[in-house]
Computed example of a mutant assay.
Amino acid sequence: MIRYALKCDQGHAFESWFKSAEAFDALLAGGHVGCVICGSSQVKKALMAPAVRPARKADSAEPAATPGALTQPASPAEEALAEMRRKIEESSDYVGDDFAREARAMHNGEAPERAIHGEARLDEARALLEDGVPVMPLPFAPKRRTN
């Protein structure tokens, strides 16, 4: 796996992981790499610093930030997404990979209705929609699955 710092034509900076340099090039050429903030497919690699571990006995005044972690939202759009995420996570139950089963059980009256969020494969989500189960994708990955 390889992590690239990326930048879109709108100036948004973000990072993403790819299977290999060749996989990144193929996805980029196919228009499958998009800005996580605005969705632009005009993306290029940004200047990256090498990841160097500090010496074992190096004293650090403050802990190092997790690579790729967002600290402060850099734009109003990022602030809105961060607020949306906070509200969703506060007001719903995370059901993980059981999302499709839980959503279907609630729709069929087999489980009490409640707000949930989680993960579903594309075929599971499509089947839920075809059966009239109201679902929608979220514009962020669950915290439990982020790197």
Rank of each mutant, 00 (worst) to 15 (best):
V33L: 00
A49L: 15
H12V: 09
A46T: 08
A77W: 13
V36Y: 14
D93Y: 15
S75L: 13
R56Q: 13
M84W: 15
E78I: 06
K44D: 03
M106P: 07
D93T: 15
D93N: 11
D97R: 13
R53D: 11
A23R: 10
F24M: 08
F18L: 02
I116L: 05
C8R: 02
G109K: 03
V43I: 08
A64P: 15
G132I: 07
A74T: 01
E90C: 00
Q72M: 14
V43E: 03
Y4F: 13
A26L: 09
Q42R: 12
G109F: 09
G31Y: 12
C8Q: 08
C8T: 03
D25E: 10
G68P: 00
A55Y: 13
A80I: 15
C38K: 01
R145K: 10
R121H: 10
H117W: 14
A111D: 05
E62T: 15
M84G: 11
A49E: 11
P134K: 07
L128F: 02
I37L: 01
C8N: 01
R144S: 09
P142E: 03
P139I: 08
A74M: 11
V135M: 02
L128H: 01
G31I: 14
G11Q: 05
A141G: 07
F18Y: 10
T71G: 02
V133P: 04
Q72T: 11
T66Q: 12
L70N: 08
D25I: 00
A5T: 14
N108Y: 10
Y4N: 06
D9Y: 00
S91Q: 12
R144Q: 07
S92A: 00
V36Q: 15
E79T: 15
T66M: 12
L129E: 11
L129F: 11
E90M: 07
P139N: 06
E15W: 05
I88P: 01
H32M: 12
D9G: 13
I116P: 00
S16D: 08
K143C: 14
P134E: 09
G132F: 06
R104F: 06
L27K: 06
F14V: 03
V33W: 00
G31L: 11
S75P: 00
R85V: 02
N108S: 15
S20I: 05
P137H: 01
A49R: 09
A80C: 07
T146W: 07
P137F: 08
S20F: 06
L81F: 15
S16A: 12
E15D: 05
D123I: 14
A46H: 13
D131M: 03
L81I: 15
I116E: 05
H12Q: 00
P137L: 07
I88E: 04
E22W: 11
R86N: 04
T146C: 14
V52N: 08
R104L: 14
E119H: 08
D97G: 14
V135A: 05
P139K: 07
S91I: 01
